[in-house]
């Protein structure tokens, strides 16, 4: 396995060549905020919060640290003024969707974002896809998925699968950075438990 040397925030970092910039930074104790990242899952680049400035072969660009592979001699800057500004805006937008999320509130504070910049439009889910991907990639059940597109996109449980699998798992609950997932689950239970043929796994 090859080892590459790169610079992150002026610090020389050695990383395995199959690592991402995020992993390399973490291994060197450099903090990059993430919301949609999870070690067990493929990169998804939904939240864009891990955005960093990458200089490689003389070219500077912005990229998501959770998905960019490390390269020899790469120069990464994680806390430039531009990047902080981008993160602030992202946080402000996400907070308007999930105003009660503790995780977001903490990040908003840390980055000095303006929590009242955008009108609250609580839809709760920030589309990080953690629940959907965890269920598909780790549990291989796909009991929850996205439906619709654009502004109407939301998560939705597949009742037939959820009624069999979810009660005894619920591992996705703690992954959700907002409360959207639990609400959606309770809603599904309420809807399907109305039908006479429904029998919750727990009640058997």
């Amino acid at each position: 396995m090859g080892v590459v040397t790169l610079t992150i925030d002026n610090k020389e970092v050695k990383a395995k060549e199959e690592m991402t910039v995020l992993e390399a930074a973490q291994s060197a104790g450099i903090d990059i905020p993430t919301l949609c990242h999870h070690e067990k899952l493929e990169p998804y680049t939904a939240c864009r919060l891990c955005m960093v400035e990458v200089e490689s072969r003389g070219r500077v660009k912005l990229d998501t640290a959770c998905s960019s592979p490390v390269k020899e001699n790469m120069v990464v800057r994680t806390k430039t003024e531009d990047i902080i500004k981008i993160r602030r805006t992202l946080l402000e937008l996400m907070l308007s969707h999930a105003p009660d999320s503790r995780e977001l509130q903490a990040l908003v504070k840390e980055y000095g974002a303006d929590k009242d910049r955008f009108e609250k439009e609580a839809s709760f889910c920030i589309h990080c896809g953690l629940c959907v991907r965890y269920c598909a990639e780790v549990k291989k059940k796909s009991a929850v998925g996205f439906i619709n597109s654009g502004v109407r996109r939301e998560i939705s449980f597949v009742p037939e699968i959820a009624s069999k699998e979810c009660w005894n798992c619920k591992e996705c609950f703690e992954l959700c950075p907002t409360e959207a997932l639990q609400t959606a689950y309770l809603f599904t239970v309420a809807q399907i438990s109305d039908s006479p043929s429904f029998e919750l796994e727990s009640e058997k």
Binding site: V132, A136, S142, V144, G145, E160, I161
Partner: peptide, 13 residues
């Protein structure tokens, strides 16, 4: 293909 994925595609378009 999982039902969740099919639902996603069928509601996307």
């Amino acid at each position: 293909v999982s039902l969740a994925q099919i639902q996603h595609t069928a509601t996307f378009y």
